[in-house]
Design a protein around this nucleic acid. Structure first.
Lengths: 231, 231
DNA sequence: GAGAAATCGTGTACAAATAACACGATTTAC
DNA sequence: GTAAATCGTGTTATTTGTACACGATTTCTC
């Protein structure tokens, strides 16, 4: 069998991560203020090169781990970006992944060491290369996905209130929903378990804390709701 | 500025195309019976290597054109596949695209020359490498997409009847819909224009021929229906 | 070519989901 | 301590979805 294809068009493959977080108010992305070349001083996504002996997805998780210290987070491939001159240094195909993390779980020191900052989506600076487009498409994908599958919870702490969840969905869809209808719609999925507790030390202790019914979550991942605003 | 990154992990990037067609009965994919190495004699998707001076998408359209003679068809990237040993010959990252074409428009001689055949999805043979997974994911993506956006028309001739359109959707979702409700739902989108004609030479001339309102199609591409069976 | 079977278009009734709005109780802000 | 804001539950009207009926036309069968 052949050991190599008779081609001389091998290129670098990189991975860029769109890392989403939610601070209770805004939907945020984790961005790097680059203190390295190329494009030093500018903003970009967290990225890195894929190793030859490493699965694409494994590489993406490695890069996410390097920046956040996290493992086992929700991560999904967005798509490959492969325009000839997207990277001015050298032809590079980048495969982008988006991740949803609980913003309070990540390792702040690692972020600091990498010069990474959480930025609200509506205050996002311009990014290098085609990273702006990556973020735009990741948000769009998130909107599609979250409208049909219960992935919003990935952005929240283990225990959360329904108003919190609503603010998250409103941030994702840049839209507002009727408080009462939202609550009923969410509870009708039976995906939430009432813990009986209230937030003792938090800002608000009016609302009841719920947690996700993990078993149901797995079971009915493919049959959720239709939120969808008009996006 | 650097001319090259200091890495030695460049790999081949390939493109594989999942080409969907509809013959009035079944949803089909265009597959290659390989008369070349590697995996000669087995079935695979149409594919090829990306050139270093060629955008990914341009490469995908080139490959589609080589096999079908078509240009300006609906084509969308599925995702990149990048497991280390997906191609036993050499590490290769493949970026897959799916296309929707009018099955009667393609160049049959080109297909013959490439040893390509239309195969119904439910009679699909096993494919090489991870091509089976590509087809499965492409179908899933098509189901999502077609439930929210009016892309089904890309698979039909310019003029078509509502029963034809229904058979298409039933093929996509492996499901059946109520004839009367389907018709009303489709017409309520105002996307179809009644041509007044009936199919003179076709099999059936009972149903009225419609054509797509191109202007509306562009305008309300993002606000379509919710078909979705349970997938 | 005549009668039977299938298909097409339109119509109606009922059920479910969505949207809009009201109220009392609790918590927070001043 | 009082006013304003938030939370949970409830009610109603509208829209959308589902199930089934009928007559007209076309196709099939012999």
């Amino acid at each position: 069998m052949l050991q190599q294809y008779p081609h001389d068009n091998r290129v670098l493959v990189a991975t860029d991560c769109i890392i989403f977080g939610f601070d209770g108010e805004d939907l945020k992305v984790l961005l790097i203020k680059r203190n390295f070349e190329p494009e030093k001083g500018k903003w970009s996504l967290m990225g890195g090169f894929m190793n030859v002996n490493e699965d694409l997805e494994v590489g993406a998780k490695r890069i996410l781990h390097e920046l956040t210290g996290l493992e086992n987070v929700y991560m999904e491939q967005l798509q490959a970006f492969g325009e000839v001159s997207r990277d001015p240094v050298e032809r590079t195909v980048s495969v982008s992944f988006y991740a949803l993390i609980n913003i309070h779980d990540h390792d702040a020191e690692l972020a600091r060491a990498n010069n990474a900052y959480w930025v609200s989506l509506d205050k996002k600076p311009s990014l290098i290369f085609d990273h702006d487009r990556m973020v735009t498409m990741a948000l769009q994908r998130l909107r599609y996905k979250a409208a049909l599958h219960p992935i919003g919870f990935e952005l929240l702490p283990e225990k959360f209130t329904i108003p919190q969840l609503q603010r998250l969905y409103e941030a994702i869809y840049s839209n507002s929903f009727d408080r009462r209808n939202f609550s009923r719609k969410i509870l009708s999925t039976k995906l939430l378990i009432d813990t009986g507790e209230k937030n003792e030390q938090g800002i608000t202790k009016k609302a009841v804390l719920y947690r996700l019914d993990q078993e149901r979550y797995q079971r009915q991942f493919n049959a959720f709701l239709n939120f969808i605003a008009d996006f």
